[in-house]
Structure formats: C-alpha cells, structure tokens
Nucleic acid binder design. Structure first.
Lengths: 158, 158
DNA sequence: CTAAGTGCAAATGTTTTGCAGAATC
DNA sequence: GATTCTGCAAAACATTTGCACTTAG
C-alpha cells in the first residue's frame, strides 16, 4: 500500500474520481519525481515543454495537473520568504519541515517527532482533527552567517 | 521600547530608512490596527478607500504600505488552505500559531512555548540564525467536526 | 463511441511600476 | 528647494477558462 510508485498512486487517485491518466499527466508525474528538488510551476512548464519524446505539455495542462497532484497527496506547497511558493514531494518522502534562509533562499529540511507530538496534543485540546502541519523557520543559514572576510571561506565556524 | 504604539513604531522604522510618515500611511496603520482580525490587501483597500476624513488612499499606496509594514515587523502573512494569504498583527500581540480549518477556513490561534524551545534547539544544531517561525496545522475544526444530526442536514452517511 | 483532456489564446485577478503633480522635511 | 509620496493608468505576472479538437477507456 505504501509501496506504490508515484504514478501508480496517482492513477489510483484518478480512478476514484473517474478521471484519466493521460500521456501528458504521465509525463508530468515522471518529470516531477525524477529528482527530489523544490520547483515552481514555471520550472515544471519549462521542463515538460521540451520533453525528449517529442511530446510537449502545455502550460494550462501543467497547472491543471499540479492541482490534481496536490489533491492526490503527491505534492505539497512550501512558502519562500519572498512570498513565492514552491512545490515539493509529499509522497514517498518522510514528513519534515524547513529552515528557510532569507539571504540565499536555501530550504534546509529537518525532521523532529517531538514537534508532531506537541501539535497532536494541542489539536486534542481544541477538538481539532488534524490532517497535517507545516512549520517554517525563518532566518539566516550557517553559510550566509559565515564571516565574509575570507578568500574562499573553507571553514565556516558557526 | 515595547511600549510604542504601532504608529510610533512605524515612524521609527521609517526614520531609520529616511522615509516619511505621510497622512496616507497613518490612515493605513490606524485602520490596520483598529481591530485584531485577519485581512487581505483587497479588504484594506476597501476600508481606506472610503475613509471618514474624506481622504482616500489609493490601491497602489496600500500595496506599498503593506510591504513597509511587513518590513517594519508590524504585520506578517498567514497562508490559508485555499492558497490565499492574509495579514495579521505581528506587533503588540503575542507570538502564536494557527490551526486552519479546511472546511470553514477558520484561523484558530494558539500559543506554545515548548515548540519555540524545540525550534531554537534545531536552529542551534544547524547553525541557523532564527528570526522567527510559522507553524500552521491543517485539518477540520471542532465546529465543523460536530455531529451533523440537525434538521436540515440531509443525512449523507458516507 | 462518449466522456474527459488538451492546447490555444483570451480572460482574470493580483501586484507592480512609470510618471506628473502634491506633500514633506 | 530637493526628495519622497501619491494617484492614476498601464504593465507585468501568474493562473484560470471557453472552446474546438483529440484521446483514453
């Protein structure tokens, strides 16, 4: 059950909604899960616009598919400090949160079960039925904090 | 220092940047802090467009001021599940996080120091210099969870 | 064969920007 | 008096949608 590939999982989702797994949607899923990296709609549009099979996928279709992939639980959004949002894999990848560098924009992932436990407790107290959470920590990353007074800063002592 | 009113705090911020506290900006700050409620740019535009003093503030000025207010640390953004974002007070109001109901859109605020402590620890481990964080918990609120055994709830047993 | 999906281009909704006149320091 | 702001309208973006054609099931 947890062993389905993203595309299988997506087909299953579409089936339950009476929708179809088309060639375009397959191309998109394949491209999205080809590497674990954050991306936005524009990135993806560029990647599938010049697909090697000669088949191209249009802008509108990418937007429509992204929405489906979110609904299917395959993707989720993460906010960036500049206000823009990017997508990341939400399937076949452990729950995690992010440290977001305001200087270089780096998204650093981390996991922590204690936080989930506390969140669960809070939800209980509020009679809130949790489906998920998102924690974003803003600040400056170790690299950007490093003293700039080096030639090629090899040792960033933090 | 923590005793400045929002508008004083804003003026201070503007001074350090060699910018001015104009009448329009005053109107905006006043309106924004008149009540502690979440709002978006459009809401605020409507509210200051028909200001009682007879003075109106334009759309462009509101957008420009919102950005300044964020930079000044007076406002911060919170995401809603539908993808839209709203602003809330980030000054003169305790640090808190949100439970966000996917059904009715309610934003329920809560505070928890344990989470901050854990976040601080994680930042330490990553050499990350934190400036703040945002935790959003998604799910269904108590109200929407409540038994639908009312008269006109067409009993859709699922 | 039929319902659903696609691409296109036009429409939308939101935020930003150039500029001339107005206001502030 | 010089610099910063404002309002306007146009521009810039990002995303959505109507429609005729194509395709999956």
């Amino acid at each position: 059950m947890g062993e389905l590939t993203p595309i299988e999982k997506f087909r299953e989702f579409l089936l339950t909604k009476g929708e179809r797994l088309t060639r375009e949607r397959s191309i998109i899923v394949e491209e999205v899960f080809a590497k674990h990296e954050h991306f936005d709609a524009e990135d993806l549009i560029a990647r599938v616009a010049r697909d090697k099979t000669g088949r191209r996928v249009s802008r509108a279709t990418v937007y429509r598919a992204l929405k489906l992939l979110e609904d299917a639980g395959l993707l989720r959004k993460v906010a960036r400090p500049n206000g823009s949002e990017v997508y990341e894999h939400d399937y076949g990848y452990p729950q995690h949160d992010h440290l977001i560098c305001a200087k270089c924009g780096a998204l650093i992932e981390f996991t922590n079960e204690a936080i989930s436990a506390i969140v669960d407790k809070i939800c209980n107290e509020h009679g809130f039925n949790k489906s998920g959470h998102r924690l974003e920590v803003y600040g400056i990353c170790a690299k950007c904090n490093a003293p700039p007074n080096r030639r090629h800063r090899k040792l960033d002592l933090v």
